[in-house]
């Protein structure tokens, strides 16, 4: 019994710390001082910095879905419906999740290693000693920036993905442009757009806060920074999958 308690204590305590950090980061939204400069720097790093890789990934996922699906649909003679499938898979699921995973890999790691290095070189302590709240100065700007940029990146990924699908549909399958685009456009309902934008918004909280959490918990020098970075990516990626399953379950039932 005692052994079980000792086994369970660290994860529960960790989760509690995570909630405390998240609560403080959220509360700081309504409290001064606000560091606008830091928010813009982070928006640039997270949003603009991830743009190319998101475009590339989005494009090729559209290409791949179209190629795979056109073959499957050909059995039913429904190759013409491929636009619909690309639109629904991308907007509902793959756009948000792929973008979130890319940003988790790029930025949760970046955030964790940056904050982790600051932690081990006593910069976080120095910040507190000099009268600045590290959560206000470091965590909240990263959270705001991710929450603004991730939905935007997702929109870009969705659109570029549809474009990638179109390239295959038009040049390889030989569908007329209007058929592909009308089909894709009409497939999307209000519900799809809402979940397609709500998901990246929720993922943004997970990615930024998990990154900050492991960064600020770093201990044990350079090795600790590496460990924190790895944990941030792994944990935020897992939570992206868990949360997308839960949200999908809710939205599927709504219809």
């Amino acid at each position: 019994m005692e052994g079980l308690l000792d086994f369970l204590k660290p994860p529960v305590a960790g989760l509690q710390d995570f909630y405390i950090l998240s609560g403080r980061a959220l509360r700081n939204l309504f409290r001064g001082p606000h560091y606008a400069d830091d928010i813009f720097i982070q928006m640039d790093a997270i949003g603009v910095g991830s743009l190319w890789i998101v475009i590339l990934t989005g494009f090729f996922s559209g290409v791949v879905i179209t190629m795979q699906m056109s073959r499957a649909l050909a059995q039913y003679g429904a190759t013409g419906q491929v636009g619909q499938i690309v639109a629904i898979t991308l907007v509902r699921e793959l756009g948000p999740v792929l973008t979130a995973l890319l940003v988790a890999g790029r930025n949760a790691s970046g955030i964790a290693s940056e904050l982790g290095s600051m932690k081990v070189t006593e910069q976080i302590d120095a910040m507190r000693a000099l009268g600045t709240d590290p959560i206000q100065k470091l965590v909240t700007p990263r959270m705001i920036a991710t929450c603004v940029m991730l939905p935007l990146l997702t929109i870009v990924a969705d659109f570029v993905g549809l474009l990638g699908g179109y390239v295959i549909a038009y040049f390889s399958i030989g569908l007329p442009s209007s058929q592909y685009w009308t089909n894709a456009y009409q497939a999307l309902q209000y519900n799809d757009i809402v979940q397609g934008l709500l998901k990246p918004f929720v993922f943004a909280f997970i990615i930024s806060l998990v990154g900050c959490f492991y960064g600020l918990r770093t201990s044990g020098g350079t090795q600790g920074v590496g460990l924190a970075t790895t944990k941030a990516v792994v944990v935020s990626s897992i939570w992206v999958f868990v949360v997308t399953s839960m949200l999908t379950r809710i939205f599927v039932n709504l219809n």
Partner: peptide
Amino acid sequence: VLFQEGGLFD
């Protein structure tokens, strides 16, 4: 406060 390694923001 002076921190051990200076604690400067790099």
